[in-house]
C-alpha cells in the first residue's frame, strides 16, 4: 500500500525517506524553493519552501514525509510570508533585473513573480559587491548572490573541486572562490562544471552568452515557475 500525507487537502504519495518537497514535486505539486535542488543534499537555508506541518512552520526540503501528516503550503498566509522572504533577498543584494542577463531565466525573479511581489517593500542595503570578470569565459556578479550555496555543493560534491565557499557571517556573508588572489581566473573552474550551471540567479554567468536567447523567449516567459513542476528543477539552458 502506498503511504500518503495530505498537502492542501490533496493526498500525496511518498516513498519512505522522501522529504515533503520531493514527494510534492514528484506528484506535480509545486512548492516554492530556491536553495533546494534534487541532485544535492538539502540545505534548508532559503526557507522559501516553508510549509506548515500539523500547524507548525518547517522547511519542506528537510522535513521527511510521513503518513498522515497534514501539510499546508499554497495558502495566503504562507505565500505572504514567502513573499516577505523574497523581498528580503531583493533588498539584501543589488537586484537590478533590467540590466541582468539572467532576467527571464532567474529563479529568484520567477519566484517573486509567482508570489506576486509588486515591490521590495523594505529599505535597500545597497551593498558594495565588486564583480569578478577575471576569468576569460565566466563572470561572477556577486551583487545577485542569495547565498543558496548550490554552487558550493555542486563544486564540492559533483565537480570535486570546491571552487566556491561561503565566507564571513550574518549580513556580511558572501561567496568566495578558491584562490589566494580571490579571483576566479586563478581557480581550476571550468565552464563545463556543474557549479557553473546551477546558479539560480545571475551570479555565475558565461560570458558572451547573456542574450543568445532573447528576452521574451526565456524559461519563465511562457510558463510561470510554478508551472515548471518537473521543470522547476530544470537548469537554465544558455547554449
Amino acid at each position: 500500500m502506498t503511504q500518503t500525507f495530505t498537502l492542501d487537502g490533496q493526498e500525496i504519495p511518498f516513498t519512505p525517506g522522501q522529504t515533503i518537497i520531493q514527494a510534492a514535486l514528484a506528484a506535480g505539486v509545486f512548492i516554492p524553493h530556491l536553495c533546494y535542488h534534487p541532485e544535492f543534499k538539502p540545505h534548508g537555508s532559503c526557507k522559501l519552501c516553508t510549509v506548515k506541518v500539523n500547524g507548525r512552520h518547517t522547511a519542506s526540503c528537510t522535513f521527511k514525509a510521513n503518513t498522515g501528516l497534514q501539510v499546508e503550503s499554497n495558502t495566503e498566509e504562507l505565500n505572504a510570508e514567502r513573499r516577505t522572504l523574497v523581498q528580503m533577498l531583493f533588498v539584501e543584494g543589488n537586484h537590478f533585473c533590467p540590466s541582468c542577463e539572467k532576467s527571464g531565466n532567474c529563479q529568484l525573479q520567477a519566484t517573486a513573480y509567482d508570489l506576486g511581489m509588486m515591490s521590495p517593500h523594505f529599505d535597500h542595503f545597497f551593498p558594495d559587491r565588486p564583480v569578478d570578470a577575471s576569468h576569460p569565459e565566466l563572470l561572477l556578479d556577486f551583487n545577485r548572490c542569495i547565498l543558496c550555496s548550490l554552487c558550493v555543493r555542486a563544486s564540492r560534491d559533483v565537480d570535486g573541486k570546491s571552487v566556491f565557499a561561503l565566507a564571513d557571517r550574518g549580513i556580511q556573508s558572501h561567496l568566495i572562490v578558491n584562490a589566494e588572489s580571490g579571483q576566479l581566473a586563478d581557480t581550476n573552474v571550468s565552464v563545463d562544471d556543474k557549479a557553473v550551471q546551477v546558479c539560480p540567479v545571475g551570479v555565475i554567468l558565461r560570458k558572451r552568452q547573456g542574450f543568445v536567447v532573447p528576452i521574451g523567449e526565456r524559461t519563465y516567459d511562457e510558463l510561470p515557475i510554478s508551472g515548471h513542476v518537473h521543470g522547476a528543477v530544470t537548469l537554465t539552458e544558455e547554449s
Binding site: S45, K47, L85, M88, V91, D123, F125, R169, G170, I171
Partner: peptide, 21 residues
C-alpha cells in the same frame, strides 16, 4: 542578534539587520 546571526537562513540573516536598522 544582528551581530551574531550566522547568516545561514534568509529570515534571520536579513531580518535581524532590518530590525536593527
Amino acid at each position: 542578534f544582528a551581530h551574531e546571526s550566522c547568516g545561514f537562513c534568509t529570515p534571520c540573516r536579513v531580518g535581524t539587520s532590518l530590525l536593527k536598522n
